[in-house]
């Protein structure tokens, strides 16, 4: 891929565009998932992904081909997300007053509809769905820094090293943030299910 990119820089704009489109197609779904789990909203995720692609194309020459394209564009997306979060802090406060909880619940319902749970009997399946919903909600309620790490490492399946590249912090920081995030989720689950959770999950 590295040689390909270096060559592409010397090519015409049209060729560069094709190269970029190909890379985008490869990671579009993963990037959308990443944005969705950060925002918890498909519409916002779509906006974020589009903006990330635009910005990535704008700064395509700064892409270092030693690193994976997906990590690079994920880092761009994360930066845009952080900027939006900072700008929307004030807005969110009023938005919370303006809207009721319906739209959040609808988002959750949309997500749960697509979830396929396996298990023995309808009770187990229902319980698993409930646990997944609670974990999903707990992750959504996490502070931004912890959420970023748990989404990358646990949901997206990135390694600590990959996550540290995307977030732009040392591996040790990733490790401690992930630990705190999991501890928070654990507390939420313990409050809801007590010590029975593991037995119930099977």
């Amino acid at each position: 891929m590295s040689g390909e990119h270096v060559a592409s820089v010397e090519r015409t704009l049209e060729e560069e565009r094709l190269w970029f489109e190909e890379r985008v197609r490869e990671c579009e779904t993963n990037l959308f998932r990443f944005a969705y789990y950060l925002t918890g909203n498909a519409e916002r995720a779509k906006d974020l992904v589009q903006e990330a692609f635009l910005r990535a194309f704008q700064y395509r020459h700064s892409f270092d081909s030693r690193y994976p394209f997906e990590s690079w564009i994920s880092a761009i997306l994360l930066n845009i997300y952080r900027q939006h979060e900072r700008r929307d802090r004030f807005l969110k406060f009023f938005s919370a007053l303006w809207q009721n909880k319906d739209s959040e619940e609808e988002n959750e319902e949309d997500f749960m509809e697509q979830l396929r749970c396996e298990g023995e009997g309808p009770e187990t399946i229902a319980l698993r769905r409930q646990v997944i919903r609670d974990v999903y909600k707990a992750i959504g309620d996490l502070p931004r820094k912890m959420k970023e790490v748990i989404v990358l490492c646990d949901i997206m399946g990135y390694s600590y090293e990959e996550a540290s590249e995307v977030i732009g912090c040392p591996i040790g920081t990733v490790r401690s943030r992930l630990h705190r995030a999991r501890r928070y989720v654990k507390k939420v689950l313990e409050a809801a299910y007590g010590d029975e959770l593991l037995r119930l999950w099977g």
């Binding site: 998932r33 519409e43 949309d110 697509q114 979830l115 997944i132």
Partner: peptide, 22 residues
């Protein structure tokens, strides 16, 4: 075990590709 369970559940969440609706 609790941490491992959280990881397993999070992976389950990660298997879902959300619809590009809205």
């Amino acid at each position: 075990r609790a941490f491992a369970l959280i990881k397993v559940v999070a992976r389950e969440i990660g298997k879902v590709t959300p619809k590009k609706i809205p």
